[in-house]
Design a protein around this nucleic acid. Structure first.
Lengths: 129, 129
DNA sequence: ATCGATGCAAAGGGTTTGCAAGGTT
DNA sequence: AACCTTGCAAACCCTTTGCATCGAT
């Protein structure tokens, strides 16, 4: 692994959440370590995905692909309040079992999922009425 | 509403699942009804979303934004092949019941959800090995 | 006559690629 | 020397926009 790629990898794994390609380049520049060219980053990222270091982030976003460190993607899902943004993380074995069953039905070998429930939490409902 | 937009709307609502902008234009051309220009379609779609006719499909897009009729929403979720992009739409009452139960547990009033399973379909697995 | 809708072409923004130069073994 | 990596610029794809024209009120 070259030095440039090592810098890219180090920076990528440092993010708490997900990051865009531009943000990554920005970070590298600020850090002054390397002047990784945009094209180089674009070429490095798929390799890092291949190597299992990072993954495309499963956010329904519009601006461009985002990535996140592989270890970020632990098995929890989100229950998001559409009013106040509060997020509850939950985990349901029954749900995961069900997902596996659905994948089996269509003969897909599952390796990931996004599950996000959206609604309004109790306090927001009370506040509204 | 102009005739062109009416044709666009009619075609959009005719799809069983979701569609891309190109597919929509293609359909319109094949139907020969109108030669709706790409730019016109791009301008019409946000209006139709605004009007509640269609919605952006909650698929982590590969190639470009996809849309689906509003009434399609909440009726199915997606199983996406990470290799070839093939999308299977499925619906599971058990799954929805489970979601409702989770929401109830945390006292959220559910009004939407994203559920996307990601994996590799049979033919892609075969091709690789 | 006015005002929105359309076609066209050109511009934008994100991503990919061809190629020559630079590194590494 | 052979091979991989990088920078750069140009190409690409999807989407948006400026502008003149068309259409309906």
């Amino acid at each position: 692994m070259s030095k440039v790629r090592e810098s890219i990898a180090r920076a990528a794994l440092m993010y708490d959440g997900h990051f865009s390609v531009d943000e990554l380049v920005q970070t590298l520049h600020e850090r002054g370590v390397q002047d990784a060219h945009l094209a180089t980053v674009y070429r490095a990222l798929p390799l890092m995905v291949e190597a299992g270091l990072i993954q495309p982030a499963l956010v329904s976003k519009h601006d461009g692909q985002r990535y996140e460190a592989s270890f970020e993607r632990d098995h929890h899902d989100h229950l998001v309040c559409t009013s106040c943004g509060r997020v509850v993380e939950y985990k349901s074995e029954a749900l995961e079992a069900l997902q596996r069953e659905i994948a089996r039905r269509y003969d897909y070998e599952l390796d990931d999922h996004v599950h996000e429930l959206r609604g309004r939490c109790k306090s927001c409902r009370n506040r509204a009425h």
